[in-house]
Design a protein around this nucleic acid. Structure first.
Lengths: 170, 170
DNA sequence: CTTGGAAAGTCAACAACGCTGACATAATAT
DNA sequence: ATATTATGTCAGCGTTGTTGACTTTCCAAG
């Protein structure tokens, strides 16, 4: 630790934090942190014979109950065939309910069952625990920067989903 | 769990940034940002019929030339069998050279060839471009926080690799 | 009311990349 | 010298991503 990530910016801008070396460290930080970020849920999922794809589906269904398959598709950024395989097992196992739309009966509105909500809680508890520890040890200023940089890295389409959910339904 | 971490503490610290809602936003920020983070290299790799695993191997071989298969293994956190498949294609295609160790002939010391270095450059250029844009638009304070939180999230073992390389060749 | 198109789902095949098990070879310890 | 440990390879399997082709259901416009 303890090296210049960028000094003040007096008259001329100091751009030390934009060197290739700094960028490489950021890249590796993303790699190692993401590995840790997914490790806890992955361990839990093994007990249920589910994978990371199931976790992601459960997360967003919990986040926005009643969303359609198509909406979920665009959030996850996978093909419908890939999502369908995951969704089918979750419905079969009674963790997710797919209700036919009232206005548009072609649509399937997705909800977690009681069992699905329980698994969601178990998974997100594990993930939040790690993130809470990281947040706590670094403080609110670092957390704000963390979120700002991540948001700036997103593709506009993905950022739309992120922001939608951020403001969406409180 | 799920207690209001929000308000204030006896001491007077404001812990609003530790609410479950804030944590959830951090989790989703990680998800969406990582997707964007890998999107650029993934697009390039398609042209070469390689995948993300090849990228990771190339990155770390470039980062620390001459490292052994075992060392690379512990950085990537996969099984040696999984890495071997990737490494074999890279050697066959003339992007990586695996030199038998002089002291210990069991070891293979890995180096990028000229062609391997060229691909590494192409991939990391794409990744750096996105990260540079994010860094520039958020500034050095945010970048420092970004790195701090990511580092705090890592497992100790992975963090060791991260720090080792960080000090490696400044 | 017929038809065009969007939404959802299915089936098949394939690729990337995790995994375990079995094995060959080299170094080391007994 | 022989057994054990370390390193790397080969073979096969599972998850999850992909594309392509196709059907069914439904809404809406002509």
């Amino acid at each position: 630790m303890a090296e210049p990530v960028g000094m003040a910016k007096p008259g001329g801008e100091n751009l030390l934090f934009l060197t290739d070396e700094q960028l490489r460290k950021g890249i590796e930080a993303m790699f190692f942190a993401y590995r840790a970020f997914t490790a806890d849920p992955d361990r839990i999922l093994e007990n249920y014979e589910y994978g990371r794809a199931h976790h992601r589906a459960i997360h967003f269904i919990n986040r926005q109950p009643g969303l359609t398959v198509n909406t979920l598709l665009s959030m996850l950024g996978v093909t419908k065939q890939s999502l369908n395989r995951v969704l089918r097992t979750l419905v079969e196992d009674g963790l997710v309910e797919a209700r036919v739309g009232r206005n548009d009966k072609r649509e399937r509105h997705l909800h977690l069952t009681v069992g699905g909500a329980a698994l969601e809680r178990e998974l997100s508890d594990a993930q939040r625990t790690r993130m809470r520890a990281a947040y706590r040890s670094t403080g609110p200023t670092a957390v704000a920067g963390f979120r700002q940089v991540l948001e700036a890295m997103m593709d506009p389409d993905l950022r739309r989903h992120y922001n939608t959910m951020k403001d969406g339904q409180t």
